[in-house]
Design a protein around this nucleic acid. Sequence first.
RNA 1: UCCUCUGUAGCUCAGCGGUAGAGCGGGUGGCUGUUAACCACUAGGUCGUUGGUUCGAUCCCAACCGGAGGAGCCA
Length: 435
Amino acid sequence: MHGWVRTKRDSRTFSFLELNDGSCLANLQIVADATLPGYEESVVSARTGASLEVTGEIIASQGQGQRWELRASRIVLVGASPEDYPLQKKGHTVEFLRSIAHLRPRTNLFGAVFRIRSRMAYAIHRFFQERGFVYVHTPIITASDCEGAGEMFRVVTMEGETMRRGEDEFFGKPTYLTVSGQLEGETFACALSDIYTFGPTFRAENSHTSRHAAEFWMIEPEIAFCDLARDMGLAEEMVKALVSDALDACAEDLDFCNRFVDKGLIERLRFVRDRAFARISYTDAVETLLACGVPFEFPVAYGLPLQSEHERYLTEQHFACPTTVYNYPKEIKPFYMRRNDDGKTVAAMDLLVPGIGEIVGGSQREERLEVLLANLREQGLDESAYDWYVDLRRYGTVPHAGFGLGFERLLMFVTGVANIRDVIPFPRTPGVAEF
RNA sequence: UCCUCUGUAGCUCAGCGGUAGAGCGGGUGGCUGUUAACCACUAGGUCGUUGGUUCGAUCCCAACCGGAGGAGCCA
């Protein structure tokens, strides 16, 4: 066995070592007799954090708390851990652990969170691959602005201390880190029918909240010959499938989260897996909010965006389950969303979940060339910059739809962890790019 | 960007206008098939930084820096 010492209990004639190799939450109890060769150097000097190689026999444990233990016949101290090792066996705050992000995966909580993260990434690929979706790698450096998605990071090269600009730039024009792969994803959906992207995304928003990071991962499926209803169905089906997979494959880690992070976690996840989601149009949602009698801080009126407090009321109080809101006024949504027949709304949808708010945002895309061009003009955008995007409507256009799912938001929902900085290995937020 | 809270030992915190305490962690010794082990002893702090008020500031005030929560924006 190989692993790191989580804690040790010495007596005069033997020691108990709790060894963990990160493969699961549980430690393996090592019983090390003082008569072992090299006991002083390998066991007595092995503090919390030290790495060990242990040979021995798995036997039934005499003590309570574990069924098995390893009776060591040989222990080698691979790497010692001096007395200034920062992790104690008692609880640390997540804020402190963030400051030692290189060591926090050695804690129970972060081990669990990042095992779940890995499993959910796998489950996402499996969900789409099983349904015949093609995984597309959209560019990270892009010259296109997925309008409305947020502030962008510039990508530049330097001449000494000076930024190369204009035609002197590496790409001959301004480029940015992607804020969304959607527009590029649409081009592949209009060839391979069902595609998805899953990769890093960057937003230079100066937002300081527990739900925003400058670098995060996003899943963006795009489906050809698809309308909004099917799009919503796919989003709901995916959330259910991922939650269900987590319950099955990450039971031990989720149980830990349920005990130490969020007492109602597992009950909520089962509820999401087993129950139907609610759906409500934006128009009906506004009426529901106006009629509910709750004194909101921000005004509710047709044509205004739903505020966080409104979304939370709908998903946490009114429906008390994940809720999809659809058909938003065209004025508050970007140019590429499909105009509905009423002339007032677009085929957009947001999937809201209790405790997090918006987890999925999507829409049916405008496939009609004239309507798309009119939208671009109406919103004062430069048509020439979207030439290739408009081409999709010139040549064999099809109704298509898609959505974006914030991977970290999903992980917050699945683990109950309240801060996005604690579900991404090395979080980037305004002013913070450590490690 | 706006609002609120916060910064004291390695960690989590208490405290007070007269220059500091606990628990845990560390060290030493003891002890027990132990389980967030236990018992004893011990080391460890320019009280975020810079100014100001005061006889005197860790405490009161201001600015700045860091952390957290909320809002906006979103994923």
